[in-house]
C-alpha cells in the first residue's frame, strides 16, 4: 500500500541501496568461499604422512614439516603458560582489587595501545629486548615471550568481560561467611569465569598460530627437531614462518600450500571451539 505512493526517485534509491548491499554481501561470501576452497583444493592433496612426520633433508631433497609443527606447538604452550597467569592476574586486579579509577583507566589505555601495535614492531622490540638485552639469542622462548606481550590484551579483555558477569551476590555471600578477599577470588570468582578464561586461551591460540612477522627475528628460521626444553632454547620456524620461507624464498609452492591448508583447518577448528564455548556460556547465563 505504502509502496504505491512512493515517487520514482525514492523507489530507485531503495532499489539501488538494496542492490549495493546484496552485492557487498555476495562479494564477501564469495571471498571467504574462494579463499578456503582454493587453499584447501591446492593444499590438501600435498599433505602426506611423510610430509608431516619428517624433517627437511638436503640429502634426499625432501621437505618435511615435523619441526615446524613441533615449534608451533612449543610456541603455543609457552605463550599460554606465561601469558595466561599474567593476563588473568591483570584482569583480576582491574575488576576485583583496583580502587583507583585513574590507575584502572591507565592500565586499560595501555592494553588498548598494545592491541593496536603492529606485529613487526613487537618483533623488533622482542629482538632488542629478549634476544639481545636478556641474551636469550634467537630462540623459541624469545618468540613466545614476544607473543605473550602481544596476547596480553586479548586474554585480559575476555577474562575481564567474564569476571563482570559473576554475580556480586556470590562475592558478598563469601565475604559474609568470613572469607578473605584472596580466598573469595580463588574459590568463588575465578571458578565462575572459567569460560571467559578458556575463550581468551582459544583466541590467543588463534593469534599465535597465525603470527609470523613478530617471529621472524625473535624465533628464527631453523628446521631442527627438538624436545620441548631444548626446543625452547634453540631457534625454530613456526608453520607460518616456514610457509613464508618456502613460498617466497624457495618457491616450494606445493609445501607452502600444504602448510596453508593445515593453517586453514586449524583456523576453522579454533573458530568452532570459540563459538562452542561462547554458546555454552550463553546457555549458562540464561538459566
Amino acid at each position: 500500500m505504502l509502496n504505491n505512493k512512493l515517487s520514482g526517485e525514492r523507489k530507485a534509491y531503495i532499489l539501488l541501496m538494496k542492490a549495493l548491499m546484496l552485492f557487498s554481501v555476495a562479494v564477501t561470501a564469495a571471498l571467504v568461499l574462494f579463499l578456503f576452497g582454493y587453499v584447501l583444493i591446492r593444499g590438501l592433496p600435498n599433505i602426506s604422512w611423510e610430509l608431516l612426520s619428517t624433517k627437511p633433508s638436503y640429502l634426499t631433497e625432501r621437505i618435511g614439516i615435523l619441526p615446524d609443527i613441533l615449534n608451533t606447538l612449543y610456541l603455543l604452550l609457552a605463550t599460554l603458560a606465561v601469558g595466561l597467569p599474567l593476563g588473568v592476574g591483570a584482569a583480576v586486579y582491574l575488576t576485583e582489587y583496583a580502587g583507583n579509577r585513574r590507575l584502572v583507566s591507565l592500565i586499560e589505555y595501555a592494553a588498548e595501545t598494545l592491541s593496536g601495535i603492529p606485529s613487526i614492531i613487537y618483533g623488533l622490540v622482542g629482538m632488542l629486548f629478549f634476544c639481545q638485552f636478556l641474551r636469550m639469542k634467537t630462540s623459541l622462548l624469545a618468540g613466545a615471550l614476544t607473543l605473550v606481550i602481544m596476547n596480553l590484551p586479548t586474554i585480559m579483555r575476555t577474562t575481564q568481560e567474564s569476571l563482570k558477569t559473576v554475580p556480586q551476590s556470590y562475592r558478598e555471600g563469601a565475604f559474609g561467611l568470613g572469607a578473605g578477599k584472596w580466598r573469595v577470588v580463588r574459590t568463588v570468582v575465578l571458578p565462575n569465569c572459567l569460560d571467559g578464561i578458556i575463550t581468551g586461551c582459544i583466541l590467543a591460540a588463534g593469534r599465535v598460530l597465525g603470527e609470523s612477522a613478530a617471529l621472524l627475528y625473535t624465533a628464527g628460521f631453523a628446521h631442527a627437531v627438538h624436545g620441548l626444553k631444548e626446543g625452547l632454547l634453540s631457534p625454530g620456524a613456526s608453520l607460518t614462518v616456514a610457509l613464508y620461507v618456502y613460498a617466497k624464498e624457495q618457491g616450494e609452492f606445493a609445501v607452502a600450500f600444504a602448510i596453508a591448508a593445515i593453517l586453514m583447518l586449524l583456523t576453522l577448528l579454533i573458530n568452532l571451539l570459540a563459538a562452542l564455548v561462547q554458546k555454552g556460556c550463553k546457555r549458562r547465563t540464561s538459566q
Binding site: 561470501a29 571467504v32 578456503f36 597465525g210 612477522a213 617466497k248 600450500f257 596453508a260 573458530n271
Partner: peptide, 22 residues
C-alpha cells in the same frame, strides 16, 4: 555470514600473501 567474517579474520596473513602471490 558472521561466522564467515570471523573466519576471514582468523586467516593468517601469510596465507593471504600466498594466495595473493599466486
Amino acid at each position: 555470514m558472521e561466522s564467515a567474517v570471523s573466519l576471514l579474520a582468523g586467516i593468517p596473513s601469510v596465507v593471504y600473501g600466498l594466495v595473493g602471490m599466486l
